[in-house]
Every structure is written in C-alpha cells, then in structure tokens.
Simulated assay, not measured.
Amino acid sequence: MSLDQLSKELLNLANGIKDGKETKKFLKKEGIKLKNKTISTAKNRVKKKTGNYIKGIKSGKVYEYQGAYACRTYSTAPHAHLIEYGHIKKDRTGREHGFQRGYNVFGTAQKEFEEEFYQDTEKFIDEVLMKDFK
C-alpha cells in the first residue's frame, strides 16, 4: 500500500468522525515536518552554494484533493527543478559541456519521512477515536 492510499483511507476515517479541523491541523504539522526533513536533506546532499534554493523550500496550505485533504512541500526557487532533476551544462554560445545529475532532494526526503508519517497518522487516528468514544 502506498503512502497516498494509506493516508487517504486513514484521513477519510478521521473526516467521518470529526468536521475536519483536527485533520487539517494534523496535516499542516506533518507538512512542516516534511519541510524540515527536506531542508536537512538538501543541506546534506547539495554541497555547493545554490542561491536561495534552501530558503525557497516551503510547506503549503492544506487543501482538498480528490476527496481527501493534502498538504504539499515545494520550492519557490526558479532553479529548483534544475537541482532536483539535473540539467545539461551549456556555455553562452550554447555549446554543451556535460550533464549535471540531479540531487533528488524531495524524493529522498519523502522516502525518509514515510515511516514517521505512518506512525504519526496512527497516533492521530487513535487520539481522534479515543476523544469521540469518551
């Protein structure tokens, strides 16, 4: 089961129990945790000075997507996709000088964060269920 499927199922359960305010608050906290994990991964993997790449990593708002709530982490830096996925090095004349491999910062941070997210989600569901049944 993927992270998206598990989170949708668990959060749909939580949405059925509460009005969604607690779920949104929980997802915002998790989005901030993912942002922090992404920043630390970027600092470890990208050793060169890359402008405002690390300053541009943000956590977004909680929004509804395909019937479930979601919160994303993204970069506002205009060159973030070049660092993330790699690019061809060119000089002013357009002559190619090799390929710079991407660092895959967001993908790595996501994989590292999955287990922590599973555990936090289970705790959240337990707390919500315990509040409702008391």
Rank of each mutant, 00 (worst) to 15 (best):
residue 92 R to I: 03
residue 97 H to N: 03
residue 112 E to W: 02
residue 117 F to D: 08
residue 82 L to V: 04
residue 90 K to F: 01
residue 91 D to F: 03
residue 87 H to F: 13
residue 84 E to P: 01
residue 99 F to T: 08
residue 79 H to W: 13
residue 106 F to I: 07
residue 102 G to N: 05
residue 90 K to Q: 09
residue 86 G to K: 10
residue 103 Y to Q: 02
residue 95 R to G: 02
residue 94 G to T: 03
residue 111 K to I: 12
residue 111 K to D: 14
residue 101 R to Q: 11
residue 109 A to L: 08
residue 113 F to K: 10
residue 114 E to K: 05
residue 116 E to F: 14
residue 106 F to P: 07
residue 102 G to V: 07
residue 107 G to E: 06
residue 109 A to E: 00
residue 81 H to T: 12
residue 80 A to I: 01
residue 84 E to Q: 01
residue 114 E to L: 03
residue 85 Y to W: 11
residue 85 Y to Q: 14
residue 116 E to A: 14
residue 113 F to T: 02
residue 79 H to I: 04
residue 84 E to N: 03
residue 110 Q to M: 14
residue 99 F to N: 00
residue 111 K to M: 10
residue 96 E to I: 12
residue 84 E to A: 02
residue 111 K to C: 03
residue 87 H to T: 02
residue 115 E to H: 11
residue 115 E to S: 13
residue 117 F to L: 15
residue 117 F to R: 06
residue 112 E to L: 09
residue 117 F to A: 10
residue 80 A to F: 10
residue 85 Y to F: 15
residue 113 F to M: 12
residue 94 G to E: 11
residue 98 G to S: 07
residue 113 F to Q: 13
residue 114 E to N: 10
residue 115 E to F: 12
residue 88 I to Y: 02
residue 108 T to N: 00
residue 113 F to A: 06
residue 84 E to S: 04
residue 109 A to Y: 06
residue 100 Q to H: 10
residue 99 F to V: 05
